[in-house]
Amino acid sequence: MAAFRDMEELCQGLLSLLGANHAEAQQRRLLRRYGQMTERLLETQDGAERQLQEILDAEKDVAQSLLDAKEQACQGVAELQQIEAKLQKASEEDTHLKASLLQLTRELEDLKEIEADLEKREKEVDEDTTVTIPAATYVAQLYHRISKIEWDYECEPGMIKGTEPVTPCSSQRLGSCL
């Protein structure tokens, strides 16, 4: 704005120069004024160029920051997709493991039932053999007391073996009896 005022003053000065006889003094003054105005215009232009360069540098920095942010966002999206893929895979594996665990749990329950059934049968067999074995042992002990036969308790089940002891007394008795 000041530059326009200066130009206007210059124009009016030139008009007055034409109208007056003091042309030489006025011309020097106007040339000095014109030099000052040109100097101020160049300073203003330099200032404007500096400000424009600063604005361009700032815009370049902002654009670079924006590009960096976009790149980071793209990397974040890629990482997010990888994490989602891993999560999906882990979820599928978890589902598979849960199914396997359920199947194994069922098998374990079945085995526990079989084990309980086997224990029950084993108890029944033990009760059956416990009842019969003491009776067989009692009979064997009774025969031993009566007949003095040495019984072999380690023979096969259902079998009883025995041997008659040979003692010097019994052979003497036999001999003396004859």
Rank of each mutant, 00 (worst) to 15 (best):
44 T>H: 02
134 P>F: 12
117 D>S: 12
96 H>K: 14
148 K>V: 02
43 E>R: 02
20 A>V: 11
15 L>V: 07
4 F>H: 15
44 T>N: 06
35 G>W: 10
99 A>I: 04
30 L>G: 01
157 P>E: 01
94 D>C: 14
175 G>T: 14
37 M>H: 05
15 L>F: 06
73 A>F: 13
155 C>M: 07
110 D>T: 09
137 T>P: 01
134 P>L: 15
25 A>I: 10
104 L>F: 10
157 P>L: 00
68 D>Q: 04
157 P>R: 00
160 I>C: 06
41 L>R: 00
23 A>S: 12
15 L>Q: 09
30 L>M: 02
62 V>A: 10
130 T>F: 09
68 D>F: 03
4 F>C: 12
138 Y>W: 14
143 Y>G: 01
133 I>Y: 10
56 L>C: 05
45 Q>E: 07
87 L>D: 06
134 P>K: 15
85 A>H: 07
122 E>H: 13
14 L>D: 02
176 S>H: 14
140 A>L: 00
175 G>E: 14
86 K>T: 07
65 S>N: 09
81 Q>V: 04
93 E>Y: 08
42 L>G: 01
154 E>C: 06
106 R>E: 07
66 L>K: 13
124 E>F: 04
111 L>R: 08
133 I>R: 08
62 V>M: 13
23 A>V: 13
68 D>Y: 05
151 W>L: 08
112 K>Y: 04
30 L>V: 02
45 Q>L: 13
115 E>K: 10
82 Q>K: 10
164 E>K: 12
114 I>P: 01
133 I>W: 09
93 E>A: 13
144 H>I: 00
5 R>H: 12
5 R>N: 11
133 I>D: 06
144 H>W: 03
77 V>F: 07
151 W>F: 11
16 S>Q: 15
11 C>N: 14
111 L>P: 01
140 A>I: 01
95 T>F: 10
92 E>S: 08
161 K>G: 02
116 A>F: 04
31 L>I: 05
13 G>S: 02
64 Q>M: 09
176 S>I: 11
32 R>H: 08
108 L>A: 14
94 D>T: 14
130 T>C: 11
143 Y>C: 01
160 I>F: 06
155 C>V: 11
138 Y>D: 12
98 K>V: 05
165 P>Y: 03
138 Y>C: 07
58 A>E: 06
100 S>Y: 06
105 T>C: 07
60 K>Q: 05
4 F>T: 13
74 C>Q: 15
116 A>K: 06
174 L>G: 09
108 L>M: 13
167 T>C: 02
50 R>V: 01
19 G>C: 12
175 G>K: 15
152 D>Q: 02
41 L>D: 02
143 Y>H: 05
149 I>H: 04
174 L>T: 12
80 L>F: 05
11 C>H: 14
24 E>W: 04
153 Y>M: 11
113 E>D: 12
96 H>V: 14
26 Q>E: 03
74 C>P: 07
77 V>P: 00
51 Q>K: 09
177 C>P: 08
92 E>K: 09
23 A>R: 12
148 K>Y: 01
130 T>E: 04
146 I>F: 03
11 C>G: 12
82 Q>W: 05
27 Q>M: 12
54 E>L: 08
95 T>E: 13
153 Y>S: 10
177 C>A: 15
55 I>H: 10
38 T>W: 08
